[in-house]
Design a protein around this nucleic acid. Structure first.
Lengths: 157, 157
DNA sequence: TTGGCTGCAAAGAGTTTGCAAACCA
DNA sequence: TGGTTTGCAAACTCTTTGCAGCCAA
């Protein structure tokens, strides 16, 4: 039984198959545009935003209008491949959830780089606060904004 | 000397005086609109947003256009009376910094209420992460989103 | 076939900005 | 008087939506 489960997972190794199944289960279709968006998302760095993804799609001549891109990002988020993250800017950023556990973010105001970190004790404290307040948290975020070590070394400060 | 400092502070007790000084120092003027906005901000609850503040100004017939309101919020933020906070919505929220120390937020998705909390151990862990990364943090936020105790008691969940 | 899909363009929400008239110091 | 500020409307950014034609199953 364990064997067959493993085999099942292997058959599903291609993300496109998984996405197709997800879409079909919801009565939706797996179009070439959605396939292009999926491929480009999988080629993304740890963090990306809609505009950057759109530019890459255009460069690759993999057609998808901005409207379709936004609609597809919604599907991918519902499917669980990506997650929307707030990085202190006025537009949405996404990150691949694939293989990554929960983590928080450090954003450098100078170079714009986003670093991730995990800290079990920090998470434990957050859980404690949630418990103490009788809250049922659906999610939480910790965002640290400032200057990263490299930028500090470079400029003044 | 301590006495005279105290007296100075008392003379400055009216926020309007402080704001006027701040504006003048920057070569700006203290207009009736800016005074109205200041008053209304001081009458605000712990958290407010531009639209809500604008509605209150209109109700009070204390004139200030939306443009002036946004411009004045910028001045108040620079002065330090208010601080912009990200509360997981697509528009800015502000809070009075006056008399409040650093704190984090819990947002209830059902009733929309925002609660504040402080947790020294949590802050210490964040400082530790910052130090370990060689980061020079200008600020950080912790946001917990979910259902508050009251809402949990009420609805299902 | 026939629902779902696409691209376009327009609508939205929130916020900013150009500009001429009005105002403060 | 001269530099600021105001209000209006238009511009802007990011994202969503209405619609007519198109495509997948």
């Amino acid at each position: 039984m364990r064997m067959s489960l493993k085999i099942d997972l292997r058959v599903r190794a291609d993300p496109a198959d998984g996405f197709r199944s997800f879409l079909r289960a919801g009565g939706h279709s797996f179009t070439s545009q959605r396939h292009s968006v999926l491929q480009e998302v999988l080629r993304s760095a740890a963090h990306f935003d809609a505009e950057e993804l759109y530019a890459r799609l255009r460069k690759r001549r993999a057609g998808a209008s901005r409207a379709t891109l936004y609609r597809t990002l919604g599907h991918l988020e519902r499917w669980g491949l990506i997650r929307r993250v707030e990085l202190d800017e006025d537009h949405a950023h996404y990150e691949l959830t694939e293989g990554i556990g929960h983590h928080e973010h450090l954003v450098c105001e100078r170079c714009g780089r986003v670093a991730e970190f995990t800290d079990p004790e920090l998470e434990a404290r957050i859980e404690e606060v949630i418990r103490a307040r009788g809250f049922a948290a659906s999610r939480h975020t910790v965002l640290i904004v400032g200057a990263c070590a490299e930028c500090r070394g470079r400029g003044a400060g």
